[in-house]
């Protein structure tokens, strides 16, 4: 036997809730593609595809977090910082679709639920956190992997909380304590978030050290760095 599945299976959440989130996922992804295609260069398509492939690879690497429990990369902040939030969110959806269709990981009816949790909460929401964290850090390129790591750490329990919301709306097992489910989900995913932060820090740091110009989330910082250097050169001239 190979690895066990890591995404929401069919059956956890009832059909009406799953369908509602499916519709929201399709509509949201349409919007992401519209926004993303406007800012993505045709030649950058392979980089976006590689980002999706890297997230796929990262999600295979379950690391132990507590006794009898493992965690794996979500990859939302990683993808959003590298290729921008819109394309990054779409990368996550591509990974989820292929995992469900070819690797029997995650239910087909649960695809909308997982897409909302990982693409919209993980990548889009995580990117908002990234921008907020980056704003309070020194405007240097070294701040980029740090802000990405902090956002990555927070994005995992946020996505877990989003699942609990879905469970509250349409969980098929009744009479469960929602606060207990929420506490358990957020608790374990805070730990998984540490691993998420490490992987995101290392990967974003690696690309920043070789080609910072390819990192979408570093654009503002690089622009301000250049402006500051130009101003310094002018003042000494």
């Amino acid at each position: 036997m190979g690895r066990t599945a890591v995404h929401i299976p069919d059956g956890f959440i009832d059909a009406p809730t799953s369908i509602a989130f499916g519709v929201a996922a399709v509509a949201g992804l349409g919007y992401c593609l519209r926004r993303g295609s406007a800012e993505l260069d045709e030649r950058a398509a392979p980089l976006a595809g590689l980002t999706a492939a890297f997230v796929f690879a990262g999600q295979m690497l379950n690391f132990p977090v507590a006794a009898g429990t493992s965690g794996h990369l979500l990859g939302g902040v990683l993808a959003a910082v590298l290729v921008g939030p819109w394309i990054g969110a779409t990368c996550l959806a591509v990974v989820l679709l292929l995992q469900a269709l070819f690797f029997a990981d995650g239910g087909l009816t649960a695809l909308g639920l997982s897409t909302v949790n990982m693409s919209f909460v993980g990548a889009l929401g995580g990117y908002l956190v990234y921008r907020g964290v980056l704003r309070v850090l020194p405007q240097r390129r070294a701040s980029v992997p740090i802000a990405a790591a902090v956002a990555a750490a927070l994005s995992v329990p946020l996505a877990a909380a989003s699942f609990v919301l879905q469970f509250a709306l349409g969980g098929t097992v009744e009479d469960l304590s929602l606060t207990a489910v929420l506490a358990a989900m957020v608790g374990v995913h805070v730990l998984i978030g540490i691993g998420e932060a490490v992987i995101t820090f290392l990967t974003v740091g690696l690309v920043m050290s070789s080609r910072p110009d390819l990192v979408h989330g570093a654009r503002g910082v690089l622009r301000r760095e250049r402006a500051a250097e130009t101003a310094a050169v002018r003042s000494t001239a």
């Binding site: 690895r3 599945a5 690391f63 429990t69 493992s70 989900m185 374990v188």
Partner: peptide
């Protein structure tokens, strides 16, 4: 990689 159930499966 760890073969233990992931966060969601463990909580479930």
């Amino acid at each position: 990689a760890s073969g233990a159930p992931d966060g969601l499966e463990k909580v479930a």
